[in-house]
């Protein structure tokens, strides 16, 4: 029995690094423009060489980010079409049910947390939030960068509208990453101090059983129940039924 499983390929690790770097630069150079009245934003703008430099860096990084997004979508489309990738990030109705189930679990009306496959519902929502937000940012960023070209095809109102969409969506994406992603990848009690899988490419079997039980069962050609019964010591308490309360058997994938 393996003690760890390959979760991300080298390409995905590189892609994450690229997104991490470009996203960080875009956030710093973008939000400092949005919140230009704040002292910290002004300090940053002045120290980077002025607003023109900040915009230049932001736009240059935006191109890199756009290319990374395009590459990701292209690779995912090809991968899925040629059956080399599982469409494991597609949101299904089970994800909605799992979200409701988990809230019930947190509130104490369910004994088990929802079991997930390769990606749980929070990761899927986060992924699609970032992807759709990213696409919106790319499109509106292009309009803001080249307003003269944009107004050749559409009314001028697209420019202030793009500004509203771009800056607000930036804030949404930033909040998704800064609050939700950072919590789940760093500060969540189950992973603290860091979920290293996106950097190493591997996830321990224990963590797989903990966070992706259905995926583990699929890989090991087993069932969640078998995994629990055969190796209860590897299953963290979150996966185990609570001692009190009515039994609530886990849902099949």
């Amino acid at each position: 029995m393996k003690t760890r499983y390959r979760r991300f390929s080298t390409a995905r690790i590189i892609e994450h690094w690229l997104q991490l770097i470009t996203f960080s630069v875009l956030v710093v150079t973008g939000l400092s423009q949005k919140f230009y009245t704040l002292g910290l934003a002004q300090w940053f703008i002045m120290h980077l060489g002025g607003i023109d430099m900040v915009r230049l860096v932001h736009r240059g990084t935006g191109i890199l980010f756009s290319l990374a997004v395009a590459l990701h979508i292209g690779a995912a489309a090809v991968g899925i079409v040629y059956k080399r990738w599982q469409p494991s990030l597609i949101i299904t109705k089970d994800d909605i049910a799992n979200a409701i189930h988990n809230v019930q679990y947190y509130l104490g009306s369910k004994n088990y947390p929802a079991m997930s496959g390769k990606y749980n519902y929070t990761q899927k929502f986060e992924y699609w939030g970032i992807l759709t937000g990213g696409l919106l940012m790319v499109a509106t960023g292009a309009v803001l960068w080249q307003p003269l070209i944009a107004t050749r095809f559409v009314t001028g109102e697209i420019i202030p509208a793009s500004k509203v969409l771009h800056t607000n969506e930036a804030l949404v994406v930033f909040l998704i990453i800064a609050v939700w992603h950072i919590y789940n990848a760093i500060f969540s009690p189950g992973v603290f101090p860091l979920n290293t899988s996106i950097f190493t490419g591997y996830l321990s079997r224990e963590r797989m059983a903990h966070e992706h039980l259905l995926e583990l069962a699929r890989i090991e050609h087993s069932t969640p129940e078998e995994i629990r019964m055969l190796h209860p010591e590897e299953c963290p308490f979150e996966v185990m039924p609570r001692s009190e309360g009515p039994a609530d058997p886990p849902k099949d994938p």
């Binding site: 909040l175 609050v179 189950g190 979150e238």
Partner: peptide, 26 residues
């Protein structure tokens, strides 16, 4: 966005607090 951003923040914070609370209780 004026509606959506506060909602998303409230949603995240609630989810995190509930998760931590359940973890601590368990």
């Amino acid at each position: 966005y004026q509606l959506f951003i506060p909602l998303i923040v409230i949603g995240f914070v609630l989810q995190i607090l509930l998760h931590i609370w359940r973890y601590a209780v368990n």
